[in-house]
Design a protein around this nucleic acid. Sequence first.
DNA 1: CTGGGGCCTGCCCCAAGGGGAAGGTCAAGG
DNA 2: CCTTGACCTTCCCCTTGGGGCAGGCCCCAG
Lengths: 279, 279
Amino acid sequence: MDEMGIGEFARRSRLSPKALRLYDEIGLLAPARVESASGYRHYTPDQLERARLIASLRRLDVPLADIAGLVELDGAALAEWLAEHWRVAEDEHASRRRLVGALIDELNGRRSDMYEVKVREVPARSVLTLKRHVTPAQAWDLGKEFLARLRDARLPRVEGEAGDVFAVYWGEVTEDSDGPVEWCRPVPDSEAEALAAGLNDLTLRVEPAHREAYVEMGPYEDQRAEDWALADQALRAWASQEHLGDAPLSIPPDELGVRITYAFAPEGPECDFAVAYAE
Amino acid sequence: MDEMGIGEFARRSRLSPKALRLYDEIGLLAPARVESASGYRHYTPDQLERARLIASLRRLDVPLADIAGLVELDGAALAEWLAEHWRVAEDEHASRRRLVGALIDELNGRRSDMYEVKVREVPARSVLTLKRHVTPAQAWDLGKEFLARLRDARLPRVEGEAGDVFAVYWGEVTEDSDGPVEWCRPVPDSEAEALAAGLNDLTLRVEPAHREAYVEMGPYEDQRAEDWALADQALRAWASQEHLGDAPLSIPPDELGVRITYAFAPEGPECDFAVAYAE
DNA sequence: CTGGGGCCTGCCCCAAGGGGAAGGTCAAGG
DNA sequence: CCTTGACCTTCCCCTTGGGGCAGGCCCCAG
């Protein structure tokens, strides 16, 4: 039996002795033998494989808690987990890339061209709404529920409206605390009352006329928290440039709310991020 | 003056009150006014810009210590720093991508095709060498020094040799502790003695005949620590498959050393990573 | 028998805050 | 005037994955 001490095992596994002691302590990688008298740890060569796998996962910033479960999986399952983990990492990296790009553009005085702010007039109109406190993850589910209700009701289209449906965020909606989200669908004023009577659980309200400053965002599913923040930043910069002050576009929003407008194209919903302000 | 409390400032800057208190404590972002009686912090709207910049930089994982210096720079300098910072981040991300790819391939039982192991026979030959203890960063500088010496001496080419020059790593060479690195250049046996006499500071030694297992790596400058580790892993896997045992390819290396062989193409040195073993 | 190197445990430290306790403040409403 | 609830304060402990050091054992070679 060619055992080795912690030092040699550390060199051959590309882990530090300190890390190996920690992994022993938490039960992730126990030495093959521990001398009871001296406490010396002894490892065998066939432990190298596990150690190297752990080292690789740590280099990918996988937390030890996750690794503890992963090393018990078989190769195929682990490979699948890794692929998923890496997809998330790629997403985050792409999001940061957008942030750093926008930041550099802004610092160089260039208006970031990826987030061009436009303005649209929205007349007073009736909207059917479904409002609930949800987390960001649930917001989309709420939307699907809302759309299903509308489908059931065979709601007529409103001519000339840009964007079929929109969601209004009435307050801070963060990962760990839910906030008020309201899904909305404009309806013809003439039919509003009749429709509302037939649709329980949906609310009818009248939106005042206003302007919306907005940026087009592309498919909803591609957006991450970072991207909404960038859009918000773009709107904020635009507002201060237009001498509108900071308050009307602040988050949490005023009585008109921050809204995300969806246009349901065949490939999925394109969306824009809008802030309403009184004229 | 429209001051605000820490809570509102936190919401509008996308920072937490906790973070703001920390930034106050370390002098990164002091409130415009602190009530001496209650200790309440009050911020002004014109502090928002700095706060938002800090928030963006933190989202890019820039350490607070760096941020403290960065916020004093002007826009152009900061943009330049960010571009450099991002280049490093892109490099690291690419390196991890290679690691995760190789790992998934290995777990699925596929031989990683990016690191194909080949074998070459190396006959006994004379080499002129320059050996010194250096850190990884200095290894390349040592190589440049070595090449300059060779140029001065107008060293003749050795026909039929693959790779002009190679560096042998005789021990652990890590970031924080230097190790023995030897740059080598084969010379014709017939001229060896005469050359050695003329070149002080360079050593002449004879390499025994051996085999080298190696993987081709592409341009040297593109390689990162991760990539060398992957190449090592590939060689190790190959060795165990070939029943060569673990020892001859272990790191730190045996008496033949781990070597990196360079071929100086016009676009820069292509290199491979080799481990020598006796037949 | 005496180095020197390897190894042990235990303690404190890092970044960048998060969570919560215990208590002080502020403004509005009864 | 009092209370209530929101907001704020400081203080302390917790996190991850170890690094660094102190003090002491262990083991082998000269």
